[in-house]
Simulated scan of single mutants.
Amino acid sequence: MANRSNHYEAAFEAYIRARKVPCVAVDEAKRSLAPEGGLKSPDFLLYPRLGPNLVVEVKGKRGKNASGRRRWENWVTTDDLDGLVRWQDLFGPSFQSVLAFVYAERPPAFGLPPGEGGFSFRGRIYRFWAVGLDDYLMHLRSRGPAWKAVAMARLAFRKRVRPLDDWLPMTAGDARPGSTSTSSQTSKESSR
């Protein structure tokens, strides 16, 4: 079971269920046993109808700063990355590890529509983006050894992150990560 007290993970699960994507919410309370010792569990396993199965680590962030601009915050812990690498190896080539960034925003004043791409859940608007683990690993930088955290530079992140829906193809015509059909949407979101 996912940590439903974490509103980002609860929103992610509600969104996945609304999209009717088969999924397993992993119990994070216990670390899995592996030959090398304890292994951090992923947050979800997703089984889109087409494309690879996904090992997902959900990272919740605030969507906009005080001036209304997207910050594209994307830091994660080295423990998160180590777990995803090891799970991808254990599951094999039919699985792909991704970092899902869930950006929460306060609803607009006076009940105005949330705008395109927003998912309303428990009084907040959420937007879901994901980047492949391999892409993230190739472009990461340290946030300091004491923090045991890393991030991608915002420009590199904005070039590589895709809407979560791109990772969840439901029909043969659905876009895949990196396809040209989503570049205009990504460019539009990135410019905000």
Rank of each mutant, 00 (worst) to 15 (best):
A151S: 15
L112P: 00
R69Y: 10
R71H: 00
F91T: 02
T186G: 06
S120I: 10
P107V: 13
F101Y: 15
A100R: 02
D166R: 11
V131G: 06
T180H: 12
T171E: 09
P107I: 14
V58C: 15
E116A: 12
V58Y: 08
A175G: 13
K188D: 12
R158W: 09
F121R: 06
S190W: 02
L164W: 09
P93I: 05
S187L: 09
R127H: 15
F95C: 05
R143Y: 02
P114C: 11
D79C: 03
G92H: 12
R71L: 06
S184P: 01
S94P: 01
V131Q: 02
S120R: 10
S120A: 12
G92N: 11
R160I: 01
R71P: 01
R124Q: 15
G111F: 10
R160H: 07
R127S: 15
G123F: 05
W167F: 15
G123Q: 02
W129H: 15
Y126H: 11
G68F: 13
R70W: 06
L137Q: 13
K59P: 03
L90E: 13
D82P: 00
A172H: 04
V85M: 03
V161P: 07
R160D: 03
P93L: 04
S120L: 13
S97V: 05
L84F: 04
